[in-house]
């Protein structure tokens, strides 16, 4: 399948050719340690995420959710299995520049906002742009646009410790969006927020996914939040045990335990 990519003209957009995969994972296995300390964190994960998909990953602690996210985010190398991100084969042949793909294709959102404490809100959002080599007015405009989009524009010059928890999380989301990533990987982004704020964050991610065609994977424990998502992926003991489509999105699809549909 051809997966030509095309950079979106809309500033907030990460459009891709319809039908192309944002992520395609095949039989991902991850083993930590060896001998007595050996842990098989992932035991063969098949997963397809299309642009605009908004998935929730749920499952008990230790079921492998974070591990899966770090593999999809190219931070952890899988022990076995295939992975394509944005149409690029990652661990097939010659290894591509992972840091670069991470910079340009993926945005991370964590449970803690994990902003750089010595940079202002504005500079935190500027950071990924700066790392990707985007400078000058273009970068400044992009930052202003994102801060406005996330309703923290008037907090731009403040340091993270001067912001409320919710504001910090929104700045963190703005940072994740800065390089118009195709994929947003969020690991329990709502765990430290109360239900109202958590819902607000989920709706925001939903909106980003819809408006920009960004694929969003959110790990969450909270069943009250999954009304927004297209699909819930249930994990247990390193396996996907259930893929349940929800009415949340327009791209709802059937659970497909086989994973591969190409």
């Amino acid at each position: 399948m051809s997966m030509t990519q095309q950079s979106g003209n809309a500033v907030l957009s990460a459009e891709s050719e319809a039908g192309a995969f944002a992520i395609r994972a095949e039989r991902l296995v991850k083993v930590y340690g060896a001998g007595l300390t050996r842990v098989e964190a992932l035991k063969g994960i098949d997963l397809v995420v299309r642009p605009g998909d908004f998935f929730a990953i749920m499952g008990p602690s230790g079921s492998g959710k974070t591990t899966l996210l770090t593999i999809l985010g190219l931070v952890t190398e899988p022990t076995a299995g295939g992975l394509e991100v944005g149409g690029r084969e990652i661990y097939g042949g010659r290894m591509p520049d992972l840091a670069r793909i991470r910079r340009e294709e993926t945005g991370f959102i964590f449970q803690a906002p994990n902003l750089i404490p010595f940079l202002t809100a504005k500079e935190n959002v500027l950071l990924p742009l700066s790392l990707a080599g985007v400078r000058g007015k273009r970068a400044q405009d992009r930052v202003a646009e994102l801060l406005t989009y996330l309703e923290v524009a008037e907090r731009a010059e403040l340091y993270p410790n001067q912001l409320s928890g919710g504001e910090q999380q929104r700045v963190a989301i703005a940072r994740a969006l800065a390089n118009t990533p195709r994929i947003i990987l969020a690991d329990e982004p709502t765990a430290s927020l109360d239900t109202d704020r958590a819902l607000a964050v989920m709706r925001l991610l939903r909106r980003i996914s819809r408006e920009n065609g960004t694929a969003v994977l959110v790990v969450t424990h909270d069943h009250r939040l999954i009304g927004e998502v297209d699909q819930v992926i249930e994990m247990e003991d390193g396996r996907i045990v259930l893929k349940e489509s929800k009415g949340g999105g327009d791209a709802a699809q059937q659970a497909n335990p086989g994973g591969s549909d190409s």
Binding site: G73, V75, A99, R100, I101, R102, R103, E104, F108, N114, I116, L127, P128, L131, A132, R175
Partner: peptide, 9 residues
């Protein structure tokens, strides 16, 4: 660690 995660060389 955050910088590295953001893809900083």
């Amino acid at each position: 660690a955050i910088l590295k995660l953001l893809g900083a060389r």
